[in-house]
């Protein structure tokens, strides 16, 4: 279970755009998972179940706190560029631009994008996990992917 931590944290960071918020989400996810472990069905994937919990906590918080504007860590120490290798710097800038773009996508598109592309979950498992039809998964995903493609093509390389 502990082995899932880094990936849950990556997913939470991708959703929320803030490491602090991500860590908070992961902590709550573990608390809920452990207190509801009897609800986890043997034979199903534990990681999917935990992604689902994290996602529902995230959605509840968004609803509860929709006055709060999304805060992004702009002074995140992890984002500091190590060394002065120009190519590395360039790559970081592109990745940062991609992250910023993803954080501006609608939450439901971002969630599916992160699960499929970053976390490697199959379309079918995403559809089960979020309880939405597979057609909705594919159309939201395609919208997000096309938007990112157009964005990346625009960024001068």
């Amino acid at each position: 279970m502990i082995g899932l931590l880094p990936r849950l944290r990556r997913f939470a960071y991708g959703l929320s755009g803030s490491l602090d918020e991500a860590d908070d989400l992961v902590q709550s996810t573990f608390e809920r998972a452990l207190s509801h472990i009897d609800q986890w069905q043997a034979g199903t994937r534990l990681d999917s179940w935990m992604y689902r919990i994290l996602h529902s906590i995230r959605i509840n918080r968004l609803h509860a706190d929709n006055l709060r504007t999304k805060k992004l860590d702009d002074s995140d120490p992890d984002e500091q560029i190590g060394g002065d290798n120009a190519r590395e710097m360039e790559a970081k800038l592109t990745l940062e631009a991609v992250r910023q773009f993803i954080w501006k996508l609608p939450e439901e598109q971002r969630t599916i994008l992160l699960l499929v592309v970053v976390e490697g979950v199959s379309y079918k498992d995403v559809s089960d996990m979020l309880c939405i039809p597979i057609g909705t998964v594919t159309s939201r995903l395609a919208r997000a992917r096309l938007a990112i493609k157009d964005f990346v093509e625009m960024v001068p390389s």
Partner: peptide
């Protein structure tokens, strides 16, 4: 663009 998205969040790991 997919490859960029795939690696954009890995530093968190």
């Amino acid at each position: 663009s997919t490859a960029l998205v795939r690696s954009a969040f890995n530093h968190v790991l």
